[in-house]
Simulated assay, not measured.
Amino acid sequence: MAFGLPAAAVWRFLWELSDTFTVSTVEAGENGDQAASVQSVRTYGRLASYNAQASRAILYMSRHGTTHSLKVNTTLVEPFAAHNGSFYLFLGELEKHEVCAAELSLFTSVCTNV
């Protein structure tokens, strides 16, 4: 996976991610038959849950009565002190898999409690 930085001072709210997702690279999966679309993003939200054993977190934010969520892969930032309900900033690669195009996940390389 090739990590790049999003443009300076560009933030994506959770509700914008699925609407503004554009393909920057396409990479083949390990078995070569599943490709993933990847985009560098900087986003933030409240931490809903964190599972250290699975290196997974759920980030959420509410807007106009609708709750938007995002799955986060925290493998590269382990261990971090997770506090459910606190705001976190994440910088990483947003992935949309061809198998389930409706589901996005963030493979984070930077995580900070804000």
Rank of each mutant, 00 (worst) to 15 (best):
V41P: 02
C100G: 03
L14D: 05
T112G: 13
T43F: 01
Y60W: 07
L76W: 07
T108Q: 08
V72I: 05
Q39W: 02
V110Q: 09
A52S: 14
S18T: 13
I58P: 03
A101I: 15
L14H: 00
L91K: 08
Y88A: 07
L70Y: 12
E16T: 06
H97R: 12
L91F: 07
A7Y: 01
T25D: 08
L47H: 10
F21S: 12
V10Y: 06
C100K: 06
H83K: 10
H83A: 09
T25V: 07
N51P: 00
F107M: 12
V23N: 05
A28W: 01
E93A: 05
L17S: 06
G85I: 06
V26L: 08
Y50V: 14
F107E: 15
L5P: 00
Y50H: 14
V38H: 01
G85L: 04
F90H: 06
A48I: 04
G32L: 04
F21H: 08
Y44N: 00
L14W: 00
N73T: 08
W11F: 09
N73S: 06
M61A: 15
Q53M: 12
C111L: 08
P79K: 02
A48D: 04
A82V: 07
D19H: 05
A48L: 05
F21L: 12
R56I: 03
A8R: 01
H83D: 13
G85M: 06
Q34M: 04
T112H: 10
S69I: 02
V23C: 10
L59N: 10
L59D: 07
Q53T: 12
P6K: 01
V23W: 04
V99Q: 04
S86W: 02
H64T: 14
M61N: 14
Y60S: 03
N113T: 15
A81P: 15
V41S: 02
G65C: 14
A102Y: 09
C111A: 07
H83Q: 12
R42L: 14
M1K: 10
V77Y: 01
G65A: 15
G29Y: 00
S109G: 14
S40A: 05
L47Q: 09
Q53V: 11
T43Y: 03
S49D: 08
D19C: 04
F87Q: 13
L104C: 11
A101P: 02
S62W: 10
S37Y: 12
E93F: 01
A28C: 02
L70P: 10
A36Q: 12
S55I: 01
A57I: 09
